[in-house]
Design a binder for these strands. Structure first.
Lengths: 220, 220
DNA sequence: TTCTGGATATGAGCAGTGTTAACATTATGG
DNA sequence: CCATAATGTTAACACTGCTCATATCCAGAA
């Protein structure tokens, strides 16, 4: 496995791309990429720090110059996952018309993200790292992920919805999407394999959305 | 750490409780107990098979006479966790009056179970074991856990609710409870520390329940 | 009773892991 | 130009999951 010439877009350019460099040039990025690949193949528990170094074509202790340890690497990947999920949610919110469709679309897209990269999603929600409090950046990225949902929900329920009610509704919606994704990932949902238009998820999401609005309207 | 005399209630009684036996007498049970204790202290990732043997006062390879490996032990503990959760749900259903209160109570009690033993709950839902399909007993125990919820939901929505709708509602309720529990466990919920009457969970659950019934009534 | 087979426990040992320390090489700024 | 920081390498430590040969105990058959 030959070393790839560094291709950093924002890092320092290497001196001699043709010569086999003692210094990798963009190791951190390469390690994250290798680890992300290995993660989806083997899962977070089986992912070995040494294997990541091996895959990046570097000695087993080189990664310690860029990460405090294995957990730090996993946390970095999880954070990137949340950033990607946030981008996907923002895009989904733009793709669907406001209202029930947007809410349902956000939920389905959320689940699709989890299904497309189940190991990453599992990592993002606890597997491999015991205490996320040690990584406040990850927690922040996690919270930012759900801004689109919160916004869409506010639109859906109407501007005159009390803030407390909106907050509860957002928590419920988030919890529902997350719960459905988890159940889908570990095979607890007996429905169709693909998260399609007719799967149990959409039914649950639509039911939830309609019911939520009805309850909010009734509460006024 | 001296060896405890075996206290099996259903296993074979030991010959001489006073003498230090070469054979433990009830090792499997002791290993499960030790592992369950260690699990809550260190988490599933940090739990070592050897440490479990050490805690049980036995050599490091003795556990292999009772479990195929570390995953097998973890799966056994997870299965016991689902059985305990199922019992708690059944008890909760009996404790609350039928209707919205019972539904909300089931959800809150579900979350309380997770909060009381977060590491066990994390283990039950994927941490430490990559592929639950290898342990069909665990999957069966998991499904059985949600029978009380399904039943209470059927009562709550009325007997004339279509089966498909009920199924979707159950999936949604399950997903919601699970999602809320996960969010609570990893500190994503900013509300009060204890899962009390005024936490965001109860609001979300009540909103969900009321909305669900409204949506089902409207669908008729 | 003695014998014998199966269940259970022990110890040594292997390959692999996360992590650290001492050392080598390269890049960079004064 | 050169000290120094950044980044890489090798070696080693303690630990892990797991396997194997061996030792011990229990229980039923001769």
């Amino acid at each position: 496995m030959t070393k790839l010439p560094p291709e950093s877009s924002s890092g320092k350019p290497p001196a001699q791309p043709t010569r086999r460099a003692y210094h990798h040039g963009d190791l951190k990025r390469a390690l994250i990429a290798a680890a992300t690949d290995l993660l989806e193949q083997e899962g977070a528990e089986a992912l070995s720090f040494r294997a990541v170094a091996r895959a990046a074509g570097v000695s087993q202790s080189a990664p310690y110059n860029h990460f405090a340890g294995k957990e730090d690497l996993l946390a970095t990947i999880a954070e990137a996952g949340f950033v990607a999920l946030a981008a996907a949610q923002t895009a989904a919110a733009r793709r669907w018309p406001a209202g029930e469709d947007r809410l349902t679309g956000l939920g389905l897209d959320y689940i699709r993200f989890a299904v497309a990269q189940p190991q990453l999603y599992r990592l993002m929600f606890g597997v491999g790292v015991n205490d996320w409090h040690a990584y406040p950046d990850v927690s922040a990225a996690k919270r930012a992920t759900f801004a689109p949902l919160h916004h869409a929900l506010g639109e859906f329920l109407g501007a005159d919805t009390p803030a407390a009610t909106l907050e509860q509704a957002a928590v419920a919606a988030w919890g529902l999407a997350h719960g459905l994704a988890m159940l889908r990932i570990d095979g607890s949902l007996a429905g169709r394999d693909r998260v399609g238009e007719a799967g149990p998820e959409e039914g649950a999401l639509r039911l939830f959305g309609r019911g939520l609005r009805a309850a909010c309207v009734a509460a006024r």
